[in-house]
Amino acid sequence: MTFFCSRLAALNILSAALFLFRALPFLVLSSFISNASWAASCCGGGASSGVILPKFNQSMWDISLAHESDEGKWRENGTHQKTTNGSEFNQQRLNLNYAQRLSDNWQINYSLPLVNNLSQSSGKEHNNFGAGDLQISTWYEAFENVTCVYKITNLESLKPSIYFGANLTLPTGTSPYSDDANLHNVHGLGFYRLDASMIIEKTVYPLSLSYQASYGEHFERPISRQSGQAITPYDLKLGARSNQSLTLGYTIFLPTLSMLTFSGSVSEVKQSKSRADGVTDESTGFDKKSLGLSLGYLTPARDWTFKLNSSYAFGGNNTTKTYLTSLGVSRVY
């Protein structure tokens, strides 16, 4: 335990000034993107990066490197405001994911981001690295057989893959409320959250359609420190979080029997207003809409998947506008 504590502590590299709360929207988006990238890989691989085990596989790991850049922010009324000249904030994340089958219809997944904040202000560049919030998910597969088909021949061939999941976010990353938080080392949100999720996917080659949705509640917690400063304690409960995503994919079978999949998605994440000591904080709450494009390559044996993703936020309220690209690889067993 001590070994792991010291190793995780060593990941935090203190540097000069960083705009602390500019990190928060990035962390929000990173959490959403990791959820939205669950293209159900019932057929092996799927349309984009995935931490959902394909049916009949026993385990899977997935690693992706993401870069997210600050494109300004949307005010509460939806108007866009550019970043101040000379100021820049970017975030890189190495997302580590592992999934393991527990039974024929149950699986458990882990996701841990390693976060690096990069910023520039007043002509100085800064970076700070640390572990983010751990997410643990369990999924129930409400189908017995692979539902990907090449041709619709009867009603049975229309049957989709349906997943029901529960996801717990643990506040393992340094948050603005951590004892040792400062302006530089925020990598987590600081709250437990429990999400209920659902994925419905249907593939009739070469097309696939996927709808994903989740709803989560943050656990209320006491706040006694902020940015390392002791403050008058109060209880804070972040607003409920909801995500929705619709993805359309097109698959090309290459002569080598490997697969190339192109997909486009539209997503929305919303969070309702926070409550402090039971009173609504009117300055909180946000929503963000994004468009995504993905390219995936699946080997003939369906065991390796290589993925390239991009996501562009095109509208929102009270949140940061971002542009995200990621490159990833996964392996199933």
């Binding site: 792991f4 393992t172 340094t174 006491p222 006694s224």
Partner: peptide, 10 residues
């Protein structure tokens, strides 16, 4: 993985 962060027990 999670045993050493104070946010787990605020």
């Amino acid at each position: 993985l999670t045993g050493c962060q104070e946010d787990l027990l605020p």
